[in-house]
């Protein structure tokens, strides 16, 4: 869905720590920036879940966490060609499963 050629595949400065982090990551909120994942399910009330699905957060879709607003504000997620910002508490309700071909992918 997302052309791979446009990303630089690289390890971060502390790859071990990130991997350990990823191992336990269960929701979008816990993922490090650039870590691709597959959305598994949304644990949110219907209207909000529906809005999120309309914006691209459909189970089975690839999601990539991007920039976080300064000072721990909402975070931008790349999903299905667009970017959507969510607060930490919303992202923590979006459960993920491991990306089949994922290693650390850091986006330019």
């Amino acid at each position: 869905m997302i052309p791979k050629g446009s990303y630089i595949v690289t390890f971060r400065k502390k790859p071990v720590q990130h991997r350990a982090h990823h191992h336990h990551a269960r929701t979008l909120a816990e993922l490090p920036t650039g870590q691709r994942c597959i959305l598994d399910h949304l644990d949110l009330p219907e209207p909000i879940a529906r809005r999120l699905m309309e914006l691209g957060f459909v189970p089975g879709t690839e999601v990539v966490p991007g920039k976080r607003a300064p000072g721990g504000g909402p975070r931008v997620f790349r999903v299905d060609g667009s970017e959507v910002a969510l607060r930490h508490e919303t992202a923590a309700k979006l459960f993920i499963r491991r990306h089949p071909e994922s290693d650390l992918v850091v986006l330019s």
């Binding site: 909402p74 970017e83 919303t90």
Partner: peptide, 9 residues
């Protein structure tokens, strides 16, 4: 109680 925030960039 609803503190969700969704904004398309």
């Amino acid at each position: 109680r609803d503190t969700n925030f969704i904004l398309e960039m």
